Simulated assay, not measured.
Amino acid sequence: MSAAATSSRVVVVTGGTRGIGLGLAREFLARDARVVICGRTTEAVDKALAELGAGDRATGLATDVTDRASVQALWDHAVAAFGRVDVWINNAGISCANAPIVDTDPQDVANVFAVNVAGALNGSSVAARGLAAQAGGGWVWNMEGFGSDGRTQKGIGVYGASKRALRYLTEVLVKEHRDTDVKIGFLSPGIVVTDLLVGDYDHDPEGFAKAKKIFNILGDKVETVTPYLAGKVLAAQKSGARVEWLTNGKAARRFMTAGFRKRDLFAEVA
């Protein structure tokens, strides 16, 4: 399908082979967008594309987001396939085992910051340059997570610190691209039940049992959150926009009604 054949927007989702990323890709396709995804391996990309079943409206490329040249190749692939990019979402992210900061493996620390911070920086840089060079510009969105707003919790200090850094990075990007055709946005999905969330507690079943109580109050499944996020992303107008699923008001209401609502979001995940 050529770029001229449709006026639908082209959306790139990094980390789009599973979890929130795959859910977003599915929702953008449902809204007539054309979608480009990436994952760590060709096998993962091919599997996700088969699940999406969108034919020539979706494509993908194995990409290492920690490598700038690899991210540039993803941009080039998207432009070659669809002629341009309208929305770029830095969704790729990882975590590490729930543990005190001082007990966290240094390599795990390096990996989390390489993907969550340097990976988003690479994506933002490549996309912002590409968007600035094309007619009409476009959007870059960065995916926030626990810690982005400064809240702290023991056991996830490394992940939280990476997401706090990501918000700072995104705030600076907003300022640096003010009065240009490149718009920057913040995506905040809240607590979403994915293998990333569950995997943090692989070696801490007692901690997971405690955490599940809060997750079942505040959390949601991918298919609940991603339609909202995708719709708001496509409707956004002003740079610096924040699309937030779990607002403070929503969280407060859920705690107030928790005694009347029995939920087990992990029934199919555990």
Rank of each mutant, 00 (worst) to 15 (best):
T41P: 15
L229N: 04
L52G: 11
A3E: 03
F186E: 00
I37R: 03
D204Q: 08
S124M: 13
V65W: 01
F82A: 10
V35K: 15
G190Q: 08
F208Q: 08
N122D: 01
R242Y: 07
A209D: 14
L121H: 06
N216V: 07
G138I: 09
K183S: 07
V12E: 05
G240Y: 07
A110S: 11
N142M: 08
A241G: 07
G130Y: 09
A58N: 09
V269K: 04
S7F: 04
A270Y: 06
G219S: 13
S95G: 15
K47P: 11
R254I: 07
L218H: 09
T224E: 12
R253N: 03
G53D: 14
V11R: 13
L61N: 07
L121T: 04
L196F: 07
D181N: 12
Y201T: 06
V112P: 02
D204A: 10
A209T: 13
A211E: 14
V198C: 14
I191L: 15
G231T: 06
T247R: 04
I214T: 11
V243P: 10
N111G: 01
D108N: 05
I94N: 09
V11S: 14
S8K: 06
T59Y: 05
G155Q: 12
I94H: 08
W141C: 05
S95M: 11
V36C: 15
L61F: 07
N90C: 08
G259A: 03
T104W: 00
G147Q: 05
G259H: 01
T6Q: 13
A135C: 09
A133Y: 15
G123E: 01
D204G: 00
A252Y: 02
A236V: 03
F208G: 00
A3F: 02
A120P: 05
V174S: 04
V172K: 12
L218F: 13
A128Q: 10
Y168N: 11
A236T: 04
A209I: 12
A161V: 10
G19Q: 13
S7Y: 03
V65P: 02
R178G: 12
A48Y: 09
R151P: 11
R261K: 08
A50K: 11
L49S: 00
R178C: 10
V225R: 08
A114I: 01
M143A: 00
I89R: 11
M143G: 00
A258I: 01
F113D: 02
V71C: 08
R178T: 15
Y168G: 10
Q72V: 00
I37Q: 06
A81N: 06
E43C: 14
I184P: 00
G150I: 09
D220P: 07
F186D: 00
L29N: 15
V71N: 09
N142W: 09
V115E: 01
K232C: 05
L246F: 00
D105W: 01
A114L: 02
R254F: 04
F28D: 03
D103P: 08
A236K: 03
S7W: 04
R31A: 12
G137M: 02
E268W: 03
A30W: 08
V126I: 02
P205C: 13
L49C: 00
I184R: 02
T257K: 02
T152F: 10
S70V: 06
R129L: 09
W141T: 03
D200I: 15
G249D: 04
V13L: 05
E171S: 10
M143V: 02
E27F: 11
A114M: 05
R242G: 06
A58C: 10
G199T: 03
A99D: 08
I37C: 04
R129A: 07
